[in-house]
Amino acid sequence: MTVTDPTISDPVMVDEEETRRARARRIERIAKWVLPVVMMGLTLLVWDRIVVWNEIPHYILPGPRLVFATLVEDWAMLFDALLVTLQITLMALAVAVIGGVGLAVLFTQSRWIEMSFYPYAVILQVTPVVSIAPLIFIYVENRMAGLLICAWIVAFFPVLANTTLGLNSADHNLRDLFRIYGATRWQRLRFLQLPSALPYFLGGLRIAGGLSLIGAVVAEYVAGTGGIGSGLAFRILEAGYRLNIPRMFAALFLIAATGVVIFAGLSFLSHMLLRKWHESAMQGST
């Protein structure tokens, strides 16, 4: 700065607008954590009061305290069920990633393969899994494999669609540059297309994480009591037959919590992988 204006260097003269903006930022940072927690607490309180004041029987709507007590009491059984559901979910997600990325790479290597097989990917995606699942359980002997197939069908499409889009969205000048330097097909894939596709893939992965849980739960419902019968969805069905509503709520809570954890984990992964270079991961704390 070349102009020496005494009012600028004077520490008492602070830009009012700037101070206001700084204060707003500080408040927002705190509110981002405090507000959801307060709202959650309020919701639980209102829920509890409604149940108590209206004397609603627990087989219609249990209060939050009873749900929590059930969660603790039935923890051993529910946790085993959670592990089964989680296992299917994570396996389905892994297969969705391998299958989705693999197919996407195959599609970008050959237009012919893409034209031939893309319709099948779309058909699998748009047909509700609930309607295919019974067939799958007829043809697939192994229950575990059946569950896995169902969850995979639901989860793989966002990975495939996003990765394909990403692989094709590499900067065209960079493509030209790779051609000029005589890059092989493999080099182009490895050094240009895969890195270009990473942000798209991670976007698809976050969606697929939630969908594989949904797929696993839906498949368990369809497999029903005759199945391996120890996943969380089966516990919910079973508790429903026995009018054990608190346990239904406890299992439901576990499923929701699992979904949140999966989403948060994948968001964190995405942030760590992109934070150095991609716009989406650069805005501060998220």
């Binding site: 900067d171 000048n173 960079l174 030209d176 540059l177 790779f178 000029i180 330097y181 005589g182 890059a183 080099q187 050094f191 240009l192 890195p195 990473l198 150095k276 270079w277 991609h278």
Partner: peptide, 30 residues
């Protein structure tokens, strides 16, 4: 034509790679 290089209107850098890695690219591809 292996003795030439091109500079485009856009910088055309790989955003996921550091400056040194970007400059390394022509050699890396060879």
């Amino acid at each position: 034509d292996t003795d030439l290089a091109v500079v485009f209107q856009e910088p055309t850098l790989m955003p996921w790679a550091t400056v040194a890695q970007n400059v390394w690219l022509p050699f890396r591809l060879r």
